[in-house]
């Protein structure tokens, strides 16, 4: 029984970590079970909290405040005038439908990529955590999943060219080998399809990792109990494993959604410059240079991302009650 107690403690620990992560990402804090640990002096607690707080203030809050400030400053031919406030940066964005259309495309793309990452990432994580019993193989396979991240970002992107290109492997196969097409398919590369493919490949790891850790720390006793009570494997998964792994899925969703919303390098390179995201649009304004409009574009993006994350967290709280 003592081993079960240990697992219980580990589960509690994992839960608390998840909750801490949630509160870090800006959720209205789900009550942290401070009472479970040994009592600490307030000074020690402060010492633990201080580095993170200072870090966030300096590198998250301060830049965000600056971006919002710049977005309402007046653009001049030589940069911007910080003492003249104007909403020109925002009105310029909405003069044409470009920004709104791009924002819509970006959100849809982020949702599609997130959904695909769940579909692909969950089975991988499930297999790693529940299908492999030896911890050694688990670690080995997990490292294997990490492998794409050992390759430089740009290389990972450029590698798609010989696969998806007009003279790439897939088109070669379709046209030359099995001959189902007379002309190569152009839409494989420099298209929305290619961008989504590359983004899923790039970010699926951010979905696999939290789900894997969530599943690996599942309480086996709960599963055994469900089985003993006559639940079918499908029902065990649906009623026990899936609900308990949802916090991991949620964290994965936050990672992937936020990363894809802010993407611009992949979109730029895999899209061949023919497809825009809010990120590439902001970068174009930055290059002009029109910093206030770039900042306005970025501010709206951050606001939309925050709403997206808030919605995800709200969803999770509902699930926790169940």
């Amino acid at each position: 029984m003592s081993s079960d107690d240990a697992k219980h403690a580990a589960l509690e620990e994992a839960k608390r970590e998840v909750e801490e992560a949630e509160s870090l990402t800006g959720a209205s804090a789900v009550a942290v079970h401070a009472t479970t640990g040994p009592r600490r002096s307030p000074l020690v607690t402060l010492a633990w909290v201080a580095p993170g707080t200072i870090w966030l203030l300096l590198f998250l809050i301060a830049p965000l405040v600056m971006i919002v400030l710049v977005s309402v400053w007046q653009k001049t031919p030589v940069g911007f005038d910080p003492f003249a406030f104007t909403t020109e940066g925002y009105t310029k964005l909405f003069d044409t439908p470009v920004y709104l259309d791009t924002l819509k495309d970006t959100i849809i793309r982020a949702l599609i990529v997130t959904a695909l990452c769940i579909l692909i990432g969950y089975p991988i994580a499930y297999f790693l955590a529940r299908g492999v019993s030896s911890i050694r193989y688990q670690i080995a396979l997990f490292v294997f999943v990490l492998a794409p991240f050992w390759v430089a970002y740009v290389v990972r992107i450029v590698a798609w060219l010989p696969v998806l290109g007009r003279q790439g492997v897939i088109n070669y196969f379709l046209v030359e080998v099995i001959g189902v097409r007379a002309e190569p398919i152009d839409a494989l590369l420099y298209s929305n399809f290619a961008i989504i493919l590359a983004l899923v490949q790039l970010y699926v790891l951010f979905m696999v990792t939290p789900i894997f850790f969530q599943l690996a720390t599942l309480d086996n006793a709960a599963i055994e109990a469900a089985r003993d009570l006559g639940a079918t494997p499908a029902k065990v998964f649906r009623e026990v494993i899936l609900p308990l792994s949802l916090p991991g899925v949620l964290i994965g969703c936050i990672f992937v959604f936020v990363l894809v919303m802010g993407e611009f390098a992949t979109v730029r390179l895999i899209g061949g410059g023919t497809i825009q995201s809010v990120g590439t649009l902001v970068y174009d304004y930055y290059k002009l240079p029109d910093l206030p409009t770039a900042a306005a574009g970025a501010t709206i993006l951050v606001a939309v991302m925050t709403i997206g994350v808030a919605v995800l967290l709200r969803f999770s709280k509902i699930r926790e009650v169940v």
Binding site: D95, V98, T274, Q276
Partner: peptide, 12 residues
């Protein structure tokens, strides 16, 4: 500036 706006329309 106008040109850049139109170029963005073109690209998207």
């Amino acid at each position: 500036d106008y040109l850049t706006q139109k170029w963005q329309e073109f690209k998207s």
